[in-house]
Computed example of a mutant assay.
Amino acid sequence: MIPDLVTVGGLTVDNVVAADGTVGLAKAGGNGAYSAVGALMWRPAVGLVSAAVASYPRETIRRLESGGLDLGGVVWRDEELTSSNWFIYDAEGRREEGLSSPPGALAEAGFPTDRLSPSQTSQWREILRARSTTNEISYSEFRNRHPLSQRQIPPAWKDTRAVLLAPSQPDVMHEMLDFFKPGGAVVIADPGWQLAEHKLDQLAPLLSKLDAFLPSEVELRALVPGADLEHALRVLSDYCPGALAVKLGAKGSLVWNRVTDTPASVPAEATETVDPTGAGDSFCGGFLVGLLETGDAVQAARFGSMSASRIVAHFGADGALLAHPDGASALSQKAAMECR
């Protein structure tokens, strides 16, 4: 069966320290997994194009598959990571990037593995900042050695209706566009730092092919330096003919209205946040479904907000599915009722 929707992105194993100090160790994540689950909340089946290390939790894979994830586009590599990401959040939901360690490092350093006090969190952050990662195999290194390729995608997936490109290098996004776009698929992209570190003129050939572009506030400010959000979206609209929205975390999103040449605000869904990891990715997965179903960017952002609210209420990419043992179909029915 050809999946209706496909997400293209990574599969990682992450460690999280939530704002209240709660620790989530070795949680299965990655922008590909979070994007796919964001879409699975609305659709019974979603395809994934990714590359997975041998150490990715197989139990998580089984849960994702039972929830509707089609792994026909995933390549499994006989390689294990020796270092994994750490996401340490403050009360405003901000996190520091680039922190990593071997999985057991927290316990080996003498810290509790269930909850850290504020002082312990600060100490652990400083340890991570100071440590050398020279000889460790991180996900970033793995991704650079094994870039995604259209050769790994089942040929029948050329006819899928919609595709989300999670953050990847521009050459990977171009290759995926060359595969999916000729079949008429709606293709949207989440830039991540991989695109945000480039100039808009360099990205123009890619942006011109997209049906939606969904940067975060940080990424939009990097793409259009010195501009306020409204002006930055206006500038971006000259490069991308598709829908535009900037993700603002707990403040929701701003969606560009091409008719009025002004942004429309879409609030975030009220929820208790346990782990913000993957919120932006799952927003994009929900946005893709909403854009496909309604053709309206504001409505699509509402779908995205609801997907994000489900993700942040749990640890890990599969957390929302674990909370609903009937799987994605039960989630999608509940979400559809709430969005009406």
Rank of each mutant, 00 (worst) to 15 (best):
I61N: 01
P155A: 10
P154A: 08
L244C: 08
V8D: 00
V266H: 02
V8C: 05
S100I: 02
R151I: 08
T133I: 15
H146V: 11
S132I: 08
E141W: 11
G183D: 07
G327Q: 05
D190K: 03
A264E: 14
T113S: 09
A300E: 01
T121V: 13
L206T: 13
A335L: 15
E272H: 15
K158E: 14
L292K: 12
R58M: 10
P155H: 03
E59Q: 13
G24P: 05
A109K: 10
T133N: 15
M173N: 13
W76Q: 12
M41D: 12
A328L: 02
R258D: 00
N257S: 15
A268N: 03
G67W: 00
W193I: 08
R143I: 15
S66F: 09
M41C: 15
T7P: 06
A162C: 05
L203E: 01
P112V: 06
F287T: 03
Y139T: 09
Q169S: 14
S66T: 12
A243I: 01
P57V: 06
V75C: 08
G110Q: 04
R151V: 10
R151K: 13
Q123I: 10
A270R: 14
G278H: 02
L81D: 09
W157R: 07
A130Q: 12
L206K: 06
T160F: 03
R58H: 12
L106Q: 01
T260D: 11
Y56P: 00
I88C: 03
M306Y: 11
G286M: 03
D190T: 06
P118A: 06
V218Y: 07
P155F: 04
Q202W: 12
M337T: 15
L40Y: 00
G73F: 05
S305H: 05
S101E: 00
E141D: 14
P57R: 04
G104S: 11
G98Y: 03
A268R: 02
V16F: 02
G278K: 01
D114L: 13
G242C: 07
T160I: 06
A245Y: 00
V53P: 05
A18G: 10
G280S: 07
R77M: 15
T294Q: 08
V266R: 02
E126P: 04
A300L: 02
G290C: 03
Q333T: 14
H146D: 06
R63I: 14
A162I: 03
L223G: 06
S149V: 03
H198Y: 06
D201T: 10
A243Y: 00
G295Q: 05
E96Q: 14
A45C: 14
G21A: 04
E141A: 13
D178Q: 13
P241N: 09
P102V: 04
A270T: 14
S132C: 11
Q152T: 12
Q152K: 10
A264Q: 14
D228V: 09
L11N: 08
D171N: 09
V259E: 13
S237A: 14
